[in-house]
């Protein structure tokens, strides 16, 4: 079976673990070997979170090597930089361009990278960038939708993950996980599939 490694990063509270969990459940249902390894830090939110997902082999260790991930998903612009090292040369990188400012940045005491810098670092390892803007996040009945499901929709529309996990299976996993809010989740996933991609600034 084809192996496929995914490295996910973001900030605690952004739903990074949920994206990984949905992919894991879908793989499990399809009988695809999967190893899901979250590193979530302490009880507090707002810290760096990463998940390593290894699909297609039951004999792999949990940690992905540098330059080993077929796909990186980042939910935050600055944290994306911590994942670049793990992207395969020529791999795919889905970046949700959202800023979660650390306090020092808010107070103007520390710098924060711009999108072009992050993009160029990914391009430097031959990465193919798919960037979404948080400004395009749609609303459903007047409330902004969950950005992690939106991002997942885009991942499924843009990247090679669909060779292993078709969109339809993901829809089923999501519906089974939150049976009471299927309409909004279906809307969000579809909006993510159609989400406009940013151009290099």
């Amino acid at each position: 079976m084809q192996t496929y490694d995914i490295y996910l990063v973001g900030v605690g509270g952004q739903g990074v673990l949920t994206i990984a969990d949905l992919i894991t459940r879908t793989a499990f249902r399809k009988g695809i070997p999967v190893n899901y390894y979250p590193t979530k830090g302490m009880a507090q939110r707002g810290g760096f979170v990463k998940v390593q997902l290894r699909l297609g082999s039951s004999e792999v260790g949990p940690d992905i090597s540098e330059g080993g991930a077929d796909l990186v998903i980042s939910m935050e612009r600055s944290e994306a930089l911590k994942a670049v090292r793990f992207l395969k040369t020529g791999g795919e990188f889905l970046l949700y361009d959202h800023r979660w400012n650390p306090a020092a940045v808010m107070l103007g005491k520390a710098p924060y990278p711009d999108l072009a810098t992050v993009w160029d670092e990914i391009a430097a390892v031959g990465g193919k960038v798919y960037a979404l803007s948080d400004k395009d996040l749609p609303a459903y009945e007047g409330r902004p939708v969950r950005d992690n499901i939106y991002v997942l929709g885009s991942v499924l529309a843009q990247t090679k993950i669909t060779d292993i996990l078709p969109l339809k299976d993901m829809e089923e996993t999501i519906a089974a996980r939150w049976p009471k809010v299927t309409a909004v989740n279906a809307f969000t996933l579809e909006a993510g599939e159609k989400a406009p991609l940013l151009a290099h600034p």
Partner: peptide, 21 residues
């Protein structure tokens, strides 16, 4: 194809110290 690449992307990363909730 398996050699370490000479890159330092983290150099541009904003520090994110954790604090209490």
């Amino acid at each position: 194809s398996l050699a370490k690449r000479d890159i330092q992307p983290e150099a541009h990363c904003a520090a994110r110290p954790i604090t209490v909730c």
